[in-house]
Design a protein around this nucleic acid. Structure first.
Length: 355
DNA sequence: AAAACGGGGAA
DNA sequence: TTCCCAGTTTT
């Protein structure tokens, strides 16, 4: 029996029952697929329900404010996904007449929809024969076929895309795609794959050649950079000064406190003495550390954050357009990144008894 | 061809 | 610590 048929048999017995599998609605599939990009099923699940409830149809999504979408997305990471979803929803309304596209060639035009997601939408919604290539597929195919080409090289990506398309059962594209991803997630796992109970024991090249732990091959990325953030908590009665981050860095359009960044860790005295600090504040300003310093790890940088309470809002010398005061109740509704909302969760009371 | 882009869970 | 997750976009 062929690889595809055995795989689909395995899936009928062992596949997961996931909520987005009970629909052929391309909008609902799109919602789930964007949420699941580089995200574990368990982590994405609550967000899927949250978004489906807030925006049951694409026109509702398109009509929402970006603020509301980012707030719902808060904590999931890779926030460009949320911003692109909003653009995509508007494009569906404007360009596709409000009908969410099912065809690969249409879906891939949407911002945030790449080859994987377009293949998922097309195959799950209408069985269009497009093979998905995600992390699971790379792993399963590299092991089963014994492919040692790096999965994150340009050459490797092209090769695996071709192999995936060859292995696909074009008559059952949707089920096949679900099956190979579940097989990768549940059986052919990254660590300690379940080869002892695997249906492909006799045909898997990696198992035959003792390469299971060596595959897939992946080129190392670059080392993370260290950044040092000094956040200033500036309170005027029951309002705090918040800053909306701009483009070109992490956390685009999310709120945080006014910030000074340094390339090295700074003592509080060094901070007082720095040129940047003296551009922000008058000479008589006093700041006091509040809460614990936080090390926040991103995929490509380590951020060391310290927080300081500023004694008097009038000691702030400058005013940036991205800075605004917000009441405590309003702040709770704004989209903040993890570093900020976890700080607030812990230290609200230290900022003001009223908060 | 690389680098940027989050956050969390598992070993 | 390291790896990697139903990847895409920008440089």
């Amino acid at each position: 029996m062929s690889f595809a048929l055995k795989l689909m048999d395995w899936y009928r017995e062992n596949g997961r029952d996931l909520p987005w599998r009970n629909t052929q609605d391309p909008y609902v599939i799109w919602l789930s697929e964007i949420i699941l990009q580089q995200t574990r099923v368990e982590q994405g699940m609550p967000y899927f329900y949250r978004f489906l409830e807030a925006f049951p149809i694409v026109t509702k999504f398109a009509a929402a404010d970006e603020e509301e979408i980012l707030r719902l997305w808060q904590g999931l990471g890779y926030y460009s996904r949320a911003r692109n979803m909003h653009k995509a929803a508007k494009m569906v309304v404007d360009t596709f007449d409000g009908i969410f596209p099912r065809r690969y060639q249409d879906a891939i035009r949407l911002p945030g929809v790449g080859e994987y997601t377009a293949a998922a939408i097309a195959s799950f919604s209408s069985n269009e024969p497009r093979a998905v290539v995600d992390g699971n597929v790379y792993r399963v195919l590299s092991r089963y076929l014994g492919v040692t080409e790096a999965i994150n090289s340009t050459k490797g990506k092209k090769l695996f895309a071709e192999l995936a398309q060859e292995m696909l059962d074009p008559q059952h594209a949707g089920i096949y795609n679900q099956a190979i991803m579940d097989f990768g997630a549940l059986q052919c796992k990254p660590k300690k794959p379940l080869c002892a109970t695997c249906i492909f024991q006799l045909s898997c090249v990696a198992l035959r050649d003792g390469l299971v732990d060596a595959l897939p091959v992946k080129l190392k990325g670059r080392a993370s950079k260290n950044r040092y953030f000094h956040y200033f908590i500036i309170r005027k009665d029951d309002q705090l000064l918040l800053s909306k981050r701009g483009e070109g860095d992490v956390w685009t359009n999310l709120f945080e406190f006014p910030l000074l960044e340094s390339t090295e860790d700074l003592s509080i005295d060094a901070l007082y003495a720095s040129a940047d600090f003296n551009q922000y504040f008058t000479a008589d300003v006093q700041i006091k550390p509040v809460g614990e310093p936080i090390k926040h790890v991103l995929s490509h940088q380590n951020i060391y954050a310290r927080f300081y309470v500023v004694n008097n809002p009038n000691s702030l010398k400058i005013k940036k357009t991205e800075w605004n005061y917000f009441y405590f109740e309003k702040i709770d509704t704004l989209a903040k990144h993890k570093l900020i909302f976890s700080f607030l969760e812990k230290n609200k009371q230290l900022i003001s008894p009223n908060y």
